[in-house]
Computed example of a mutant assay.
Amino acid sequence: MSTMRAVQVVGYHQNLQMDQVPVPEPTGPWDVVVKIGGAGVCRTDLHILEGQWAEKSQVQLPYTIGHENAGWVSAVGSAVTNVQEGDTVILHPLITCGLCRACRSGDDVHCEANAFPGIDTNGGYAEYLKTSARSVVKIDSSLHPADVAALADAGLTAYHAAAKAARRLTPRDKVVVIGAGGLGHIGIQVLKALSPAEIIVVDRNADAVKLALSIGADHGVVAEGTQVEQVLDLTGGNGAEVVVDFVGENGATAEGTAMLRQAGDYHVVGYGENIDVPTIDIISTEINYIGNLVGSYNDLCDLMELARRGAVTLHTQKYALDDFQTAIDDLDNGRVRGRAILVP
């Protein structure tokens, strides 16, 4: 049996460890084994190591981490017809059944019998990964897996939230994006592509704000203490119709709520803290808090079309698979502009 390198969680509050494990093989008729060409490094990976997902995922340790994956098909099960060996693919993050009510309505994310590589089963910080025919999106061969891998989850999550937000936005509206990092910088481009609203970006990092302005934001606000006042000034004192919060921790939600107009939508994407709002404030302003997980398979197909057109470009920092610890440390310490990608 051939083996491969894989970066594994061996214990919570411990560093990841590189091990040799068996290369996965197709065992079921719908299995697709993918040679990884790029695996995104995500803040959720840091949260996994902190044990935040242990109870939710019930994953058995050790296991391979990494849930933003793209590469080339290396082997397929007997029933697979949508891809063949050698095809360039990006992976929808979930392995889904296709038979439950959610799957039947195209809402793969809420599949009743799903597996989530990198969260509750082996992921892509490795040379190969096993997924299913339902999870692979064949992409234009002009797109390199290492350049698009993070669109599989960070991009897909940002797309899902931005597309949901865009459905209600008109040319007279303002939308505030909190956080222009790995997710936020994609969300900004998607809002630019799908919505006629004015985009205001808030980030505590001046470089991130500069990046946001270069990719389509109309206004940039560096969060140095007066960000709420600055946003209110930019919205005529009323606040924005929509806030899309890609941070969700360190006080972002209280500030974001203060930036929201009456009857506004607050999209929660980033996470880490509790939202603490008096219920009287929610009813008197009639605001909505909206959760966003990851997008559907169809969302991913739509996003890849935007990528093919050049409307969405991922800003990446690439690291060799062996340098996984450097990538994790850089992300943890705010040294990554855009998205960190491991390349086996």
Score class of each variant (00 low, 15 high):
210 K>M: 12
245 D>R: 11
235 T>H: 12
243 V>A: 04
175 V>H: 01
246 F>W: 06
174 K>W: 10
207 D>C: 10
184 G>H: 04
235 T>P: 14
204 R>W: 05
228 V>G: 04
193 A>L: 11
226 T>D: 15
200 I>Y: 07
170 T>Q: 15
219 H>T: 07
185 H>M: 07
231 V>H: 01
246 F>E: 02
208 A>G: 02
236 G>R: 03
169 L>D: 00
186 I>N: 00
178 I>H: 10
191 L>H: 05
192 K>Q: 14
197 A>Q: 08
216 G>F: 05
170 T>L: 14
236 G>K: 03
243 V>E: 00
184 G>W: 02
205 N>V: 14
237 G>T: 05
187 G>R: 00
194 L>K: 15
198 E>T: 15
228 V>D: 01
232 L>H: 03
179 G>K: 06
242 V>F: 01
177 V>G: 04
242 V>Y: 02
227 Q>A: 12
203 D>Q: 09
212 A>I: 05
200 I>A: 09
220 G>C: 12
232 L>Q: 11
238 N>C: 08
184 G>A: 09
190 V>E: 06
169 L>H: 05
166 A>G: 05
170 T>R: 15
188 I>A: 10
202 V>A: 06
174 K>A: 15
202 V>G: 02
245 D>Y: 11
169 L>V: 03
231 V>W: 00
186 I>Y: 00
243 V>D: 02
201 V>M: 06
215 I>P: 13
209 V>P: 10
188 I>E: 06
197 A>I: 08
166 A>C: 10
185 H>I: 05
180 A>C: 13
237 G>N: 09
211 L>I: 15
234 L>V: 02
191 L>R: 02
205 N>S: 14
238 N>S: 11
246 F>A: 01
164 K>I: 00
237 G>A: 08
165 A>P: 14
247 V>Y: 00
216 G>I: 08
196 P>Y: 12
214 S>T: 14
209 V>S: 07
230 Q>F: 00
203 D>L: 13
171 P>G: 11
203 D>R: 09
201 V>R: 04
208 A>Q: 09
200 I>N: 08
170 T>F: 13
236 G>S: 14
172 R>P: 05
164 K>C: 04
166 A>Q: 05
237 G>S: 08
215 I>S: 10
238 N>H: 14
169 L>S: 03
